[in-house]
Amino acid sequence: MKTTLIPALRLTLVCVVLFMGVYPALIWGIAQLAPNRGRGEIVANNGATYFTQIGQNITTDRYFNGRPSAVGYNAAGSGGSNKGPSNPEYLATVAARVDTFRVHNPGTSQVPAELVTASGSGLDPHLSVEAVLVQVPRIAKVRGVSEASLRDLTAQHTEKPLLGLFGPEKVNVLELNLALDNLGKKGFGNPIHL
């Protein structure tokens, strides 16, 4: 038994060095060359910095609202609702969100699904173009800008599918909102990726 036990332990310890030490150190070294040195993608705008990939809890009428989140956009504790599609309590929650959306966006008959369903992570930073455009009349009214300029802004911030072929089209809500604040201001460029 001793002839098996000790070599097995020693081999395990060598693996500790290789896979817990050398491997992560190597990847960490490579990541120093990556954008923002592997600290999670960050964007700076007018002196403030944000993690662009992490969605934010945005509920005021002045900004494009993101998706509902089961964890209130807690970026230190991600989570989905884990509600099943036939759960009556869940369906009541969605119905209430639809009503709320219609109160804030009068005249909307059909509400895009992303705006009334919680994402898997609770931190989804994106919306579909459809879910952005349905909010344009409200924001135009609150901010007193033309709907056409908001639609232009949306088009500028629409991210096409990968290579134009793969995956859904989407808009990063934070980047769109930052651009919205900069709309019409002179001397403020686009947000800078660090």
């Binding site: 898997g120 994106h126 459809e130």
Partner: peptide, 18 residues
Amino acid sequence: LGVTQSVGSMEGKEVRLG
């Protein structure tokens, strides 16, 4: 409930993945 699901079922899913 008057929800359009043009990309599909979105509860628990991410927009960038679909």
